[in-house]
Design a protein around this nucleic acid. Structure first.
Lengths: 208, 208
DNA sequence: CCGCATCCCCAAAGATACTG
DNA sequence: CAGTATCTTTGGGGATGCGG
């Protein structure tokens, strides 16, 4: 918010609102519901507490989120998106679809924090998913995809259940390999979903 | 590119590639064709020359753009998007649609540089435009919209021609007022276009 | 000229400690 | 729990220089 671009351009304006470091990731976290300050801190590994406070101030001033006090006795302060903030979803979705194509398998430096699976499915798969009831178990995360809608946790009467580690699931979607995961149920339906996923990009230079 | 987020998340990954300041605006400029270094400098008011060089390096390393030498005798170096870079268009489009809703009328601090009109029409209007041949004259800029495709300059046999200053055109799209611009031709068609434009957002705090 | 590299200055980012 | 205060480090902005 502070740093402007001196151009009369809708893109430049959007970037002054949500273009600063961490800003869109804060919005992404709030997409799955209101959160407290400390919830955000632990779900955004590496963010400084002062940075988070600053971003929350800026995003509130921009009308993207609002702070609210939960009714007593809980009485803790939470941050939640406004309507305008929620409308960033298509932006985040396109970013995720684009980024997924050059995202490699999970590395050691990457943290997998609670909710990552549901988040990834929601942003990358949900918009292209065929109708059906999918259930995924990856490590200790469980998330489901029901007719294009994402749910945390299992679903009743799934058509197909996939079980594996992060690497196996990665290769399932990227290389269309189903041999590194355990599949129970409608294998055909899973293949349809896998084929709908965005195809990876061949990077010219492996970013030495 | 340099600064990572330590999360295994497609959005975080996308933001490490194009989330730095100026990066997406560089991509936006290259969307309308290859450009030389100095072209970019003058179309990105306020960018430092070292920053631009750094962004170009990072974006090249990420496989988003490539540098190429024009054939002699021109023999100057140009930067152009790769396929993967061009696929950022949906991201930019969604950002523009979202940003346009809270972008006010042009202010004194905003620079209007050559091509702004075509850029704005392309990102904001083109994806929602009804079929038809529109021609816009704003200040000394002329751009057209033909069946959802943008052209710099006039078009043959336009259905409707709009003439006005930036402020008038702004209120045409935001307030659906057609009395601040000159309209020649099919006024009905123009009204259809205006109604397709994204509606503005009521900001809670005017960002004092 | 064009395409940067260098230098200087200042404003953010990051890490840690601490307080209402 | 939800931040502010403080300190250090890094990167951005602007000017200038310089080789091709």
């Amino acid at each position: 918010m502070r740093k402007r671009y001196d151009q009369y351009c809708p893109v430049a304006h959007a970037l002054t609102l949500v273009g600063e470091r961490w800003a869109l990731l804060v919005v992404l976290e709030l997409m799955r519901g209101p959160k407290r300050y400390t919830d955000l801190v632990e779900r955004l590994p590496g963010i400084g507490t002062n940075i988070l406070a600053s971003r929350l101030r800026d995003l509130e001033a921009a009308g993207i989120l609002a702070r609210r006090l939960l009714p007593p006795p809980a009485a803790s302060r939470v941050y939640e998106l406004t309507d305008y903030g929620r409308e960033l979803k298509p932006v985040i979705r396109e970013l995720a679809l684009w980024g997924a194509r050059s995202l490699g398998p999970p590395g050691a430096a990457d943290e997998l924090f609670p909710g990552w699976l549901a988040n990834a499915i929601d942003t990358v798969l949900a918009p292209l998913a065929p109708p059906g009831r999918f259930e995924f178990h990856v490590g200790d995360e469980v998330a489901s995809l029901v007719d294009g809608e994402v749910l945390s946790g299992p679903v009743e009467e799934p058509d197909v259940v996939v079980e594996g580690d992060p690497d196996g699931v990665y290769h399932m979607f990227v290389d269309q390999r189903l041999d590194l995961v355990d599949v129970t149920g409608d294998r055909r339906l899973l293949e349809t979903l896998v084929q709908a996923a965005p195809s990876p990009v061949e990077l010219p230079v492996p970013a030495a």
